[in-house]
Amino acid sequence: MLKRINKFEYFAPSTLAEAISLLAEYKGKAKLYAGGTDVLVQMKQRKITPEYIIDIKNVPELNGITYSPEGELRIGALVTHRQFAISKNVPEKFTMLKEASLAVGSVQTRNRGTIVGNICTSSPAADTPPALLALDAGLKLVSSTGERTVKICDFFTGPFKNILKDTEILTEILIPDLPENSGGIYLWHSKITEEDETLVGVGVVVSVDNLQNKVCKQARIGLGSVAPAPMRAVKTEDFLKGKILDEDTIGQAAEIAANESLPRSRAEYRKEMVKVQTKRALSQALKRIEG
């Protein structure tokens, strides 16, 4: 039973500029705080003992889900899993990210936890990263000295590790439009424990030339919980490109995905499940293109 957290100073800035300047001032000693579902657990476990907590929930710039005329979906850092899952601003083509958000934690966790927080914690078992990898999401990182946008495939560096600097805020997720004739899905299954951590998560987006011949123009596959960090199944993606997506090809692709996954514990089972879930995900994503 974990009860106490260390003493700290609490800030609740009301603008992004203020939040960024606090972060620069207390560099390395401050922790950004939104839903608290990961940060407070890490503090109780003494994995982190920040001297300053910067609660960003009052920063209006970090709110909101917007879909641009160019087809880009923007998700602010404060958007919770629940808000995203019930949002009417999210077009159907991005439903797979709703599926991933609904796979996170429990109702209570989804009511508080944010998608951006899920990314920043960088758990290898997180649910939204595989979907966001398949969607080729961009992440906007802002600090007092400037901003940069990185692709999510370049963000994770290891278990609970990423490229975010201690002066940077991940302010928003930018999901580019999908090509015509694309379909996506997130499939997962979990350990049966008190927290139901994801054992294997597979996010897939496939795009075909046209619905008749089903030649794969592009495929992106994100895998969760089967490597030190969420990963793209690049070899599988390369294999699929230009091929007719019939049952045989999908079966072979699933084998390749299993082989390129890098699970450490329960490796044999996890690899087998990567095969099963990738096969299902590709077939079902294809069905979604047909509508």
């Binding site: 039973m1 657990v41 109780k44 629940r82 429990s106 109702v107 209570q108 966790t109 009511n111 008190e194």
Partner: peptide, 19 residues
């Protein structure tokens, strides 16, 4: 549990359940 897994500390905040 103290870590948001068991829900024994659930309350309703502005209409939504939280731990």
């Amino acid at each position: 549990c103290g870590t948001g897994e068991c829900g024994a500390c659930t309350v309703i905040m502005d209409g939504l359940t939280v731990n």
